[in-house]
Structures are given as C-alpha cells and as structure tokens.
C-alpha cells in the first residue's frame, strides 16, 4: 500500500504543483494577464478615452495613436471577452478612477458566434473578483486558463508571437495573413433594434446605462471582419432600455464592405478572419479618430 500511496499522492501533489507554477508564471509571460494586472492597478487616473471589446479590439484599436491625436487612451480589451466582461471592467475602473470623457465600445457581430459569449472572462474574474475561488475542478488553473497555454505555446514556435508587444493595452502584431475570401452574394440581413436587443447584447445596454448615469459619452463600433463576413449595412441608431433608463445608441459600422474596401488592404492588414494586424490597426484607428472628431 505504501508504494501505491506514494505514487498516487505524488501524482496529485505534482499535478497541484504544476497548476500553481502555471498560475505563478502567467502574470509574467502572458499579455492578457499583464494587461489585466496593469489595468487593475489604475487608481485615481484621468484617462480620456477608454477602449473596451474582445481580442479583435485588443489588436485593432491603436491607443497610442488615439492618445497622440485625441487624448490619453487605454485599451482594456482582452481575448474571448463578453460584453459582460467589458461591463465589469468599466464598473471597476469607474469605482477607482475619475470618469473618462468617452467610452469606446467595440463589437464584432460579423463573427459567426460573437453574441454567444456570456459570463465574465476568467482573467478579469481572477483579478477583479475572487482570484482564489475554487468551486470545482473547472477552477484548477490549467483548466481555467487553458487557452492561454496555447497562446503562450505559440510564442515558443513562432517569432511573430514572441515579437508581439502590448502598448497602452493594444496588442501589436506584425504578422500578415491575407484575406483571400470574397464577399458573399447572399442577401445580408443588417442588425436592427431587435438584433441588438437580443440576449447577447444585454450588457451593451447596461454599459450604455452606466455611461448615461455617469454622464460619459459612449461610442459603439462594429469592427471589421474578412470580406466573407462584411456587410452593406449603414450606421444604425438604436433604442433600448437598461436599469430603467431609456437609451439611444449609434452603432458605427466599420464592417461595411465599402468602408473596408477604402480603408484596408486585404493583402496586408489582416492577422486572421476578424483580427487586424498592426498595419491594419493604424488604418482603422485613423477612421475611428475621424468619426470621433465629427
């Protein structure tokens, strides 16, 4: 029995140690952990523009350029984030800091399962809520932050991943993956009030309500995707309610294919089907600045 117990307990202890090591390592090597920690450390800051979204916004919104041309900006976006995550981040920021002039919220509805993300991103949950919660096996670090293993494993095998860097919350990637897709000939259904009032967008309205209560200007953008998922929809003016507030929102549609055709080079500006690289981020951010300055 002794030999078996040594093996079994040894296995469990070593596995636990690997998990602890993984959790200790992530804040030093992972971009999103570094960012989340950096963002949480903001106290009494006076940042003019706050950027929220998921990984598409993390790559696409060049906050250095925004800071240079509009005013101080920080990109809070983290990969795989839901709008609920963005709401959590914004609430936390507003509790600790001075209110910004504008909140820029970036959606990516062109991506086929964008509105299916719910819940709070585990990294944000880890830093903002309860870092050491353990409610079951799903909370063991290797499982809870499993996708980060692959992200960081890619750094081992790809120079592009190693050379990427975080600047004011933006992840700058120089890699180029050309968009060889083509625009679909199927009729495109544009988002409308019903679409943006569905369950997946509930927290967009909560963010809008929070901004209204705090008297912050909210600008909402749809980020572009590859041609196959672009549309011909115009900018939209929406009406909705959240926390007893009646709200009006304008969605600036950057996924309109005429706009994308003018702004972006399909051969040079893409990183994946819905992520822009550094070159693309400069072009799209210039368009964002133009909209903000209207």
């Amino acid at each position: 029995m002794k030999k078996f117990l040594q093996f079994f307990i040894g296995l469990l202890v070593t596995f636990t140690l690997v998990n602890i090591l993984y959790l200790l390592l992530l804040p030093h090597i992972d971009w999103e952990f570094i960012k989340a920690r950096e963002a949480l450390a903001f106290k009494n800051q006076r940042i003019k523009l706050l950027v929220f979204g998921n990984s598409t916004a993390m790559d696409a919104v060049n906050t250095q350029l925004l800071s240079d041309k509009v005013g101080s900006a920080y990109n809070f976006s983290v990969g795989g984030s839901s709008l609920q995550t963005n709401y959590t981040q914004l609430s936390e920021y507003l509790n600790q800091n001075e209110k910004p002039e504008k909140v820029l919220l970036f959606l990516n509805s062109g991506h086929w399962n964008y509105a299916e993300f719910f819940g709070v991103n585990p990294i944000v949950e880890y830093y903002y809520n309860d870092s050491l919660k353990f409610e079951g096996l799903k909370d063991i670090p290797l499982f809870r932050f499993r996708w980060l293993f692959i992200v960081n494993f890619k750094k081992l095998i790809s120079a592009d991943h190693r050379n990427a860097q975080i600047v004011k919350g933006q992840l700058r990637f120089n890699r180029v993956v050309p968009d060889n897709s083509s625009i679909k000939n199927e009729p495109i259904v544009c988002g409308d009030n019903n679409f943006y009032n569905s369950e997946g967008y509930e927290y967009m309205w909560r963010i809008a309500s929070l901004c209204k209560i705090r008297n912050i200007n909210l600008e909402v953008f749809e980020l572009p995707c590859w041609k196959q998922a672009q549309n011909e929809c115009p900018d939209l003016i929406l009406h909705g309610t959240a926390t007893n507030n009646s709200l009006d929102l304008t969605i600036h549609n950057l996924n309109n294919y005429s706009k994308c055709d003018t702004l972006l080079d399909p051969k040079k500006d893409w990183l994946s089907t819905n992520h822009l690289n550094y070159a693309g981020s400069i072009k799209i951010t210039e368009e964002i600045i133009r909209i903000l300055n209207r």
Binding site: F7, L11, T14, F15, V18, N19, K138, I140, L142, F143
Partner: peptide, 22 residues
C-alpha cells in the same frame, strides 16, 4: 522505470486539464 510511468501519467493529467472536453 517507475519514474517514466509516473511522468507519463502526469503529462496525461496535464493534457486532460488543458484539452479535455467536460
């Protein structure tokens, strides 16, 4: 080699946590 077998089991546990569908 018990150590090899131990390490193999450990790697399997790690792969289960990283890539398992639950």
């Amino acid at each position: 080699h018990h150590y090899i077998r131990f390490v193999l089991s450990l790697i399997l546990l790690i792969l289960i946590a990283l890539f398992g569908q639950f």
